[in-house]
Design a protein around this nucleic acid. Sequence first.
DNA 1: TTAAGTGTATTATTTAAATTAGTACAGTTG
DNA 2: CAACTGTACTAATTTAAATAATACACTTAA
Lengths: 129, 129
Amino acid sequence: MIVLDIKSRKPIYEQLTEKIKELIMHDVFQPDEQLPSVRQLAGELAINPNTIQKAYRELEREGFIYSLPGKGSFVKEQTSMANKQRVEQLKNELLALISEALYLGISKKEITELAEKAEQSVKGGKGID
Amino acid sequence: MIVLDIKSRKPIYEQLTEKIKELIMHDVFQPDEQLPSVRQLAGELAINPNTIQKAYRELEREGFIYSLPGKGSFVKEQTSMANKQRVEQLKNELLALISEALYLGISKKEITELAEKAEQSVKGGKGID
DNA sequence: TTAAGTGTATTATTTAAATTAGTACAGTTG
DNA sequence: CAACTGTACTAATTTAAATAATACACTTAA
């Protein structure tokens, strides 16, 4: 299910964080569904459990999962604007990236189209507006 | 003018790349204006010339500057959709970031507002659309 | 209650990346 | 010619990522 590129310059835990994030956002994992355990996933991917845990810790920090010691790690259901700090950080990153896009000649219309494309593929998230 | 955080987890050359990018996008540097030389900037910031060169190489790759051996490094004037590869990469990054934003509860309206805010602060770029 | 699972934490070691250091070469400019 | 410029290269050092090996407290089902 999850494939890592061991030759990539990008650290394994980052690749893992991104992939799981995508699986959650595209509803491959349902809310409150249990993720593979740290040791199990480490075995499947043939990497160290500590690296898996690092990815899970990051996913928890970013508001995608929650962990219960002794039970497991689970997909977090999205409530409205759960993680304020993370949301602020994301907005800053978006502003920087959009600025660069506009500077390099991508139009505002194209960015709006990207937002609509994203909206269709991302099922999750509370319909807030 | 440029301040680096030596204690940051982010590599120095990345910090430098981002800061110079911002200065160019916000018209602190004019098109075809000469940037400080590799050695001069290394002296001012008290870091190694090789690190500066790495940042300049990245800025050149991303389409923000051009370098003439023997003469110097200069701000690149933006022509319409200059660097196709970079533009495609940027769109992919934007799509991923916008998807995450939507998932975490940021509305499409907020994203549009960010785009407008960016448009005002970024003077550069050809008015293409 | 016990055995096997869970997340989490710690220390040490190894491997990979970032940074520094020193030197060199070819082109430009006054 | 002298003093700049970008670029390239190798070596050494420092920092970060990843592995390895345990350990502890908690949960769950046998």
